[in-house]
């Protein structure tokens, strides 16, 4: 039995509004997750109420800024500092800003696009590749 995963895609300008709404509805702020993609970042804000998790996803380009939600949810400051230190994202107006000293990592922003090597999914199997030209040949013969 798996937990349902609802992910809503939103724009970064909607973030503060949605957070305020959820806060008013009595949602608890769970975490900000972030994943590095080919050339953008994928932020997931998670809120929970009565074991029901709601996730909001923002896709962010490297030079974009996002607003902080630490005014609404005071515990967000740690996650936002984490975003800044590990991913090199710019978060505006964090309530307690460590200015890059929360994580002391050997390399700066280890999860930024420059530092993350994306794994390559396995290539289609050679048999499939063989079949393809054959079928093309057949088709050409038919023609």
């Amino acid at each position: 039995m798996s937990e349902p995963q609802h992910i809503t895609l939103i724009d970064k300008d909607q973030l503060v509004g949605i957070s305020a709404e959820l806060f008013a509805e009595g949602y608890r702020f769970v975490q900000v997750g972030c994943a590095t993609l080919e050339n953008s970042y994928e932020l997931t804000y998670c809120y929970d109420k009565a074991y029901h998790l709601r996730n909001f996803r923002i896709t962010l380009l490297p030079d974009e800024e996002i607003p902080s939600i630490s005014v609404i949810y005071p515990n967000a400051f740690l996650y936002e500092n984490e975003l800044h230190d590990l991913f090199g994202l710019n978060v505006r107006n964090i309530s307690i800003d460590y200015n890059g000293t929360l994580y002391r990592t050997a390399i700066k922003t280890p999860f930024s696009i420059e530092n993350v090597k994306q794994p390559v999914p396995p290539q289609p199997k050679p048999e499939v590749v063989k079949e393809h030209p054959e079928s093309v040949k057949e088709k050409t013969e038919e023609l």
Binding site: V30, F77, L78, P119
Partner: peptide, 22 residues
């Protein structure tokens, strides 16, 4: 998060202590 490769694209742990610090 994986993309079909043997290596995961991203693995993240949100630990309870991190959440309790505030």
């Amino acid at each position: 998060k994986g993309n079909g490769s043997r290596f995961l694209q991203r693995f993240r742990v949100r630990v309870p202590t991190f959440s309790n610090i505030p």
